Computed example of a mutant assay.
Amino acid sequence: MAALAGRRGRVAVSVSPAAAPSGLSIPDTMRAAVLFGPRDLRVVWKPVPVPGPADVLVKVAMCGTCGTDLAIQDRPFPGQPPFGSFTPGHEWTGVVVARGETVDEVAVGDRVAIHVHHGCGRCRNCLNGSYTACLNYGNVAKGHRASGFTVDGGFAQYVTHHASSIYRLPDQLDWEDAVLVTTAGTAMYGIDRAGGLVAGDTVVVVGPGSVGLTTLQVVRALGAGVTIAVGTRDERLALATRTGADHVVNSRQTDPVARVRELTGGRGADLVIETSGHPTTPELSLRMVRRGGSLLFLAFYDEPVNFDIGRANREEVRLVTSRGEGRTAVGRVLRLAASGAVRGADLVTHRYPLERIQEGFEALRAKAGDPIKVVFTP
């Protein structure tokens, strides 16, 4: 692990003279969390990355977590760098401290948020705008990068990212609002893939976790007429009410299908968005959708699930899957956040310094204190 042992001095990183303003001191090493094995995340010294010609170097202000961050600690995802070298973290925000020589989209000193994926820019999917489904996913040599998945991410003091995947933060947003925009961007992109949202539609969101709660805010901001949250914990459902749900259903106490049908006059919801990832919820979600409606899957599932595809066919339900935050969804969410329609800070429940990252993830696994969004600060 010699590559991870660095001097603790402060010298200029080797970037072009125009990349950083005169007098800005950037260290040669930094503290970063490295995944050494399953559930073995350690904070070590690591070289500060050097931005390429089209990259920016960002000093991380805050990095959030989601269920995927837990999953990749147990079993590496496709394209994930090997244990002992890889720094996860994909929901990060911070300040630009250096730029590659071709970058003029942002300035040093800008506060920024990101979307995770930078597609290769050369495959058919990227050329059609579907860079989250890049055909060269994980192939860094061909230009693909997914921060915190296929290249180092934001559980560190510094991180590089391609200029095309960076967004300036509106002045009125603080770090905790900004750290949730990637999550909200996932909802926005999924709604795009589902064909959009017609003002006045009835929308059901299944699973009031961080994705579900931000999704409720997004669909409300986009003009949903009636919003219904389905979950299993009263405290989460109470938060769903505060973040945009007109009705809540505790599926441990009430049949959610019957209740949604009751609330919609027997018709079913126009759009159901499944965010929980529980193996029983896809089938439940299908039975909440009206004939000719849409079912959007934002969740990932550990195993195959039972699902009545025949019912979906008979009812002409549109089944839509979605991954990530494509089509500049994060930029659109930032505008909603600037208006106050989407508030990430309301969902940040646990805060840890980077040095306590393992403790934070153990709390997330154990659901100690009912964590919704756990964030780390370098």
Rank of each mutant, 00 (worst) to 15 (best):
P53L: 03
T232C: 11
V206H: 08
P49Q: 03
A141I: 12
A19H: 02
R7K: 13
V249H: 06
V211R: 03
G326Q: 04
I228L: 10
V151F: 10
V103Y: 05
G212W: 03
G37C: 11
P279A: 03
A229K: 11
R365K: 14
N128E: 12
F77L: 15
A3T: 04
G225H: 02
G154C: 09
P88N: 12
T232F: 00
G52C: 01
P21A: 05
T321W: 04
R124T: 13
R314S: 11
F149T: 10
T160S: 03
D270R: 06
F155K: 09
A229Q: 00
G67R: 05
G129C: 00
S130M: 11
V43G: 02
A368Q: 13
V116R: 03
L286F: 10
V248Q: 08
T150S: 14
C123Q: 00
D192G: 09
A329S: 15
A3Q: 11
V44P: 04
T87C: 15
G200A: 09
F77S: 02
V11Q: 14
D192H: 02
D171I: 04
T87E: 07
V181F: 05
R290S: 02
F297K: 09
G268N: 13
N313H: 08
V203F: 01
T227I: 08
T183Y: 07
T102R: 08
D302G: 14
V305N: 09
F300P: 01
T215H: 01
E359F: 01
D192M: 05
P47V: 05
S339Y: 08
V103F: 07
D104V: 08
T87D: 06
K373I: 10
P47Q: 13
T227V: 14
V11G: 15
T349M: 08
S85A: 14
S322I: 08
I357T: 06
H162T: 08
G23Y: 08
V159M: 10
A338Q: 15
H90M: 12
V11E: 13
P378G: 02
Y352W: 13
L284V: 13
L295K: 05
V140I: 15
P378Q: 06
G340V: 08
T160V: 15
T232E: 09
T186W: 04
S147D: 06
E316I: 11
T241S: 14
V15P: 05
V116P: 09
A146Y: 05
Y158G: 00
V204S: 07
L180E: 03
L319G: 04
M1L: 09
G100C: 07
G326F: 00
R10W: 12
V226Y: 07
D28K: 13
D28S: 14
A345R: 15
R261Y: 00
R7D: 15
A19K: 02
M62A: 13
P53C: 09
V140C: 02
V330E: 08
